[in-house]
């Protein structure tokens, strides 16, 4: 079966009123009955899982493969209390996002916009605190990416995560502006939900990274 034929069949199916799944808040829905956007974001997140697990797997091998005393202890090297507060901020941002989405779904647009704005703000603060942490480590503590294998692992893992948060902040800022422009209501909130999935994933990755890098 050719690609063109498959595509035509899908379009034909989606225009058939008897078998057509209801049009959901995420836009078009094909035969699976699941919004295209949701499938796409989960496939993307699947690739992200493998990306971060590769980094974490390498760290675990290097970390636990060293004899005792050859690996920096986190409480002597890293600022654990500051990062714990930062972790708390990121968790709060996930909560404000869910609160915002629930408000939009309930028709409370103003509350929804506040939720989106707070999520963006908390994400930006997280990135700012991480930048401060990097500054202290790199300039004052002398830990660079090439100082030792710990430095390489630390900056690779937290750096790629920070990049994801930074991109997430940009996405959340766009979604917030869309909210302020009145783009979302009780039936149209796909952008919030899909961006939210990405945001929660970034939060999930940090929960794991924080435990592995800062506490173990």
């Amino acid at each position: 079966m050719s690609h063109a034929a498959t595509t035509n069949e899908l379009h034909a199916s989606s225009s058939h009123t008897d078998s057509e799944p209801p049009l959901m808040a995420h836009g078009s829905v094909l035969q699976l009955g699941i919004p295209n956007g949701k499938i796409a974001i989960w496939l993307f997140l699947g690739s992200e899982v493998m990306f971060f697990t590769g980094l974490i797997g390498a760290y675990i091998v290097l970390r636990f493969g060293q004899p005792a005393g050859n690996w920096p202890q986190p409480h002597l090297t890293l600022n654990v209390p500051l990062t714990a507060v930062n972790t708390f901020l990121l968790i709060c941002s996930s909560v404000t996002l869910v609160w915002g989405l629930q408000s939009i779904q309930a028709g409370q647009r103003a509350k929804g916009n506040w939720g989106l704005f707070l999520t963006t703000l908390l994400g930006a603060v997280f990135v700012g605190v991480q930048a401060y942490e990097y500054y202290e480590l790199w300039i004052h503590r002398g830990l660079t990416a090439s100082t030792n294998i710990f430095g390489s692992c630390f900056y690779a893992m937290t750096g790629f995560h920070g990049l994801h948060v930074f991109l997430g902040v940009i996405a959340m800022a766009v979604v917030t502006l869309m909210g302020l422009a009145g783009k979302f209501d009780t039936k149209h909130y796909a952008a919030v939900e899909l961006t939210g999935l990405y945001w929660h994933f970034v939060d999930l990755v940090w929960i794991i990274l924080f435990a592995i890098v800062y506490l173990m």
Binding site: K38, W42, L43, M50, T53, I60, V61, Q66
Partner: peptide, 27 residues
């Protein structure tokens, strides 16, 4: 289907990372 899409990478990654974990002993 979504649950499968979400869980499959964890299984694949576990299978892929498991062999290199033996390097802990080697190191």
């Amino acid at each position: 289907l979504i649950v499968f899409l979400a869980m499959a990478p964890f299984v694949m990654v576990f299978v892929a990372v498991l062999p290199i974990l033996t390097d802990i002993v080697t190191l």
